Amino acid sequence: MGDVNQSRRTFLKSLAIIAGASMVVGLLRGLEVLVPPSVGLTSFPTLQLVDENGNPIKASDVPVNGQKMAMFNYPLSNEPNYLLNLGNDSNQPVEIPATTVTIPATGKTYEFPGGVGPSKSIVAYSAICEHLGCTYPELTFYPPGVKALTFNGPMDKVIHCSCHGSTYDPYRGAAVVTGPTTKPLPTVQLKWDPSTDYLYAVTMIGPTIYGHTDDLSGGSPISGNSTSVTMLSNPALG
């Protein structure tokens, strides 16, 4: 009888150990979802903007006023951004000046460097809404004359998210125009080479990308020294 009881105790102890180990594994797998992967990069890369065939994008070829939505990943492979050549009501590029942008969530400010390119009209912003992470096609640019239905009434010349109504001003560093967002869209700082008309992404400015505690974590590095720009239709234009 003693041997039987001892065997039973040993068996139950083994079950407890296995159950405990399974619980630990389950918790660790849960943490893989809750905690982003470790840092994918240690610094912001300088990546040339190229088309889907690997040919350099020229600043003078970026469509004015979002006739096509140009999108590229930066700084990691799962972080989409909009490349915008902003213009006026006549579809002529306009200079986008440097400005101070406020983060309503914290009251802090940062300096938006303004546009680049021959007309200083080209800017790039995160294509992930800072409210709850919606992206293209719900988040898109409404060019001059095309009205988004915002909480402040119909508005054009804005980046608007139809998911929950957040609106941003791309002419002023993607500053918040209407909530529920409390953060501007992060800016991709661009570099323009006037000798070649080529464009490069060099760093991020402003609040962190939605869902990240660090712009350099939570994804895989982009291979090589370039990132591909994809031209998509603008849903605001129907």
Rank of each mutant, 00 (worst) to 15 (best):
N225Q: 13
H212F: 12
V62H: 11
I96K: 01
L190K: 02
G30H: 05
Y110K: 04
L41K: 05
S162F: 10
N81H: 11
K58P: 00
L34V: 10
L199W: 00
Q6G: 14
M1F: 12
L132V: 14
H164I: 07
A98H: 06
V39D: 13
T99Y: 12
D51F: 11
V116R: 02
P194F: 00
A98N: 09
T167K: 11
K68S: 13
G114R: 09
V39L: 12
V25D: 05
K68H: 08
V176K: 07
L216R: 08
T150E: 06
P194G: 02
C129D: 15
I122R: 04
K108L: 09
E95P: 02
A59L: 07
V188E: 01
D214I: 00
E138V: 12
M204Y: 05
S226P: 00
N88I: 08
G238P: 04
P56V: 03
S217K: 11
T99D: 13
L31V: 02
I209W: 05
Y136D: 07
R9A: 10
E79H: 06
Y200L: 00
C129S: 14
K120R: 14
A16R: 13
A105V: 02
L185C: 05
E32M: 06
G115Q: 04
P221E: 10
A175W: 01
M69K: 02
V202W: 03
F141K: 08
I18S: 14
I128D: 10
A19I: 14
F11W: 10
D193V: 01
T140H: 11
G218I: 01
L86R: 06
C163R: 04
Y200T: 01
M23S: 14
S126E: 12
S121P: 10
N91H: 12
P113Q: 05
S7N: 14
Y168H: 09
V123G: 06
K13H: 10
T150Q: 10
L12R: 14
G153C: 10
Y171Q: 12
L190G: 01
T135G: 15
D89T: 11
I122A: 08
G145A: 10
Y210G: 03
T182V: 15
